[in-house]
């Protein structure tokens, strides 16, 4: 039964990806009416328009263009950037690495911190430290990412001069230089992502903590540590894994802002530039990568919560 459910989730994930590709394709190819007109803007002449249309394959029906686009994308042919004419694959290559490094580091730092803090807050509800954590994380999730980043720049770069205010990489920094450059965007993302994870971990544990079997454990004289770690945590693992995956997915939007504000040469920055110059093939490719990652993470979360449920692991 469990394998069946996991397979089903994978199938749903795959179907979602297809739908995502349709949305991305539709939004960028069909909605605007005449892309060629928009791309060329006022400089359009009938000749250039026709040429661009043919180049974009726009003289063919929509579904043909969709399938050829999807097919090309599947084999790694992401098309050619409108600006500069470089292949998108080459543009994306290095940028993606940068973004992955950043996201990986954020995950590595924030997951243990969040779970520890979330658990700790859930174990001591109502204490002033719990209140501080609850209030602090609530404020953090209520404000835009750029607010956190701006405040950090103000304090750490402008007032204290500890860190540089940008994270622009030239490619030949020393390791310490690299660390200093990365520190600010990392810190911003860790704060933003952790706040959400701490809140949800705490809520997940507390939710489990109001179940009758926790009261029973209290009445059996089980110590608090053991109640949380053995009785509550195992039941909250599904939700917590979910939270982690969701927030790693949430990194996507954080990355967009942070890469912009700190001029970090990542994929998101590339995409924003693409949006500003209306380089649609580039936007399509970046969007597919981001959305694909997101869908994959959500799928992982789903599967993890299925695996952590004894009802499904141990059928009747």
């Amino acid at each position: 039964m469990m394998t069946q459910m996991v397979l089903r989730r994978i199938a749903i994930g795959f179907a979602t990806l297809i739908v995502v590709s349709i949305i991305v394709f539709l939004a960028t190819s069909i909605l605007p009416g005449d892309v060629a007109q928009i791309i060329l803007g006022q400089s359009a002449t009938p000749e250039t328009l026709a040429a661009l249309r043919a180049e974009l394959g726009m003289d063919q029906p929509g579904y043909v263009r969709y399938f050829s686009w999807l097919g090309n994308m599947a084999v790694g042919d992401l098309g050619i950037s409108k600006a500069g004419g470089a292949t998108i694959a080459s543009l994306i290559g290095g940028r993606m690495g940068n973004t992955m490094v950043m996201a990986g580091l954020v995950a590595l730092i924030s997951i243990p911190i969040s779970i520890a803090l979330g658990l700790w807050a859930a174990m001591h509800p109502g204490t002033w430290l719990d209140r501080v954590v609850t209030f602090g994380t609530m404020c953090t999730i209520s404000v835009p990412e750029f607010f956190i980043a701006t405040i950090l720049v103000l304090i750490l770069a402008v007032e204290l001069h500890w860190l540089p205010s940008t994270a622009y990489l030239t490619g030949n920094e020393s390791f310490t230089e690299l660390l200093r450059a990365l520190a600010m965007p990392l810190l911003t993302l860790v704060i933003v992502v952790s706040a959400q994870m701490i809140r949800m971990t705490r809520a997940g544990i507390l939710n489990v903590m109001s179940s009758p079997y926790i009261e029973m454990a209290i009445l059996k004289g089980v110590p608090r540590r053991r109640i949380i770690l053995r009785h509550a945590f195992f039941n909250a693992i599904g939700p917590i894994v979910n939270v982690i995956a969701l927030n790693l997915a949430y990194l996507v939007s954080g990355v967009v802002i942070v890469e912009t504000i700190f001029a970090y040469p990542g994929l998101a920055k590339l995409m924003i530039d693409g949006v500003q110059t209306r380089d649609l093939p580039l936007v399509q490719a970046c969007a597919m990568i981001f959305c694909g990652t997101y869908v994959l993470l959500i799928l992982l979360a789903d599967v993890a919560s299925i695996l952590s449920n004894p009802r499904l692991r141990q059928p009747k």
């Binding site: 179940s211 009758p212 029973m216 009445l219 004894p310 009802r311």
Partner: peptide
């Protein structure tokens, strides 16, 4: 202590 609903008072994950 023995509670009214055993179904709710047994921890499902243990």
């Amino acid at each position: 202590y023995l509670a009214q609903s055993a179904a709710a008072t047994f921890n499902p994950a243990i």
